[in-house]
């Protein structure tokens, strides 16, 4: 058999799951969609002594919109469910736009939003979207819960602020201000592969189409999702003319730190990031103005 032996439990409530992670500590791994965890178990790169399967906890699978416009997503909601969800399409178009870039339908049928966010792969789409939308995640442990901003959640390569006995339970996405446009794009070798470079833009403009706030967040550009805050700040007070967008794309180069790997050189990734930055900004500005 491929994976090493382990004990397996499948709690049917969050309370039960929280008790299990408290009791078993670092011996236990949480199993969500399994689309990242099972491959590494098949290679025996991970050999957890116990798996706590979250797939039988229906209370972690939901999408809700509150009166104040906040979207709340249960961590065990499948990526495929989100991709087809009318609330996501209407109120969080950036998430809707990014989901089909994740792997393939068979993988999104199992993969969850919480699993992808917790896994913290710097090349993954969903952590970038969390930061771009200024979202937060809820971490629960037995006897307590806390909220962590996306920008504070990612601390290092495949590492988050989550403690061993905490379960990521909910994702909160605030409503976008009026006249805000969003866009996401990426370049991958083949459709469904992890991208070589990708960027999400969120741009807010005033009545005269002048930018009042902007965020630019990159995947595969460092050890965590990279928010280029200084480059994005250059957009404030500006309109979408080509010179400005090119200058911003240049400025982002100071903030991203892609590395060379078997798929592409750091130089090529930097080049892609520059080209994609101009592209998403044009799109986001246009959408903001037409909003």
């Amino acid at each position: 058999m491929k994976p090493a032996p382990f004990e397996y439990i499948a709690p049917t409530s969050l309370a039960e799951a929280l008790t299990a992670v408290r009791q078993h500590g670092s011996d236990a791994s949480l199993l969500a969609g399994g689309q990242s965890l099972v491959p590494v178990m098949n290679f025996r790169l991970a050999q957890p002594a116990m798996l706590v399967d979250l797939n039988r906890i229906p209370e972690l699978d939901y999408v809700r919109r509150e009166g104040n416009g906040f979207i709340r997503i249960g961590s065990m909601t499948r990526q495929r469910t989100l991709e087809r969800h009318p609330l996501i399409a209407q109120y969080t178009p950036l998430l809707h736009e990014a989901l089909p870039y994740i792997a393939h339908p068979q993988i999104r049928n199992r993969g969850t939003i919480g699993g992808s966010l917790a896994h913290a792969d710097p090349a993954a789409e969903l952590p970038v979207i969390l930061l771009a939308l200024n979202g937060r995640v809820q971490l629960q442990k037995s006897g307590g819960a806390r909220w962590v901003h996306g920008r504070d959640f990612y601390t290092d390569l495949f590492t988050t602020a989550r403690a061993e006995d905490e379960i990521l339970t909910e994702i909160e996405l605030p409503p976008l201000p009026p006249r805000t446009g969003v866009a996401f794009t990426e370049v991958a070798r083949r459709h469904g592969d992890y991208a070589l470079s990708g960027v999400a833009a969120v741009v807010t403009v005033d009545e005269r189409a002048v930018c009042t706030a902007a965020r630019l967040v990159y995947l595969n550009a460092g050890d965590t999702p990279i928010s280029a805050t200084q480059a994005a700040a250059l957009l404030v007070g500006e309109q979408a003319d080509e010179e400005v967008l090119t200058a911003v794309a240049h400025a982002t180069q100071q903030e991203i730190t892609p590395t060379t790997d078997i798929h592409a050189t750091a130089d090529y990734k930097r080049h892609l990031a520059k080209v994609l930055t101009v592209r998403v900004l044009q799109q986001a500005f246009t959408r903001a103005v037409n909003e």
Binding site: A10, G34, V38, N55, Q106, R110
Partner: peptide, 28 residues
Amino acid sequence: EHGVCGACTVLFDGQPVRSCLMFAVQAN
């Protein structure tokens, strides 16, 4: 056996999934 090729695709409650990325116990 790590989710890339799709040869192991089966329907799980009617939806296509990689059977190499699930444990049989999860299909209970």
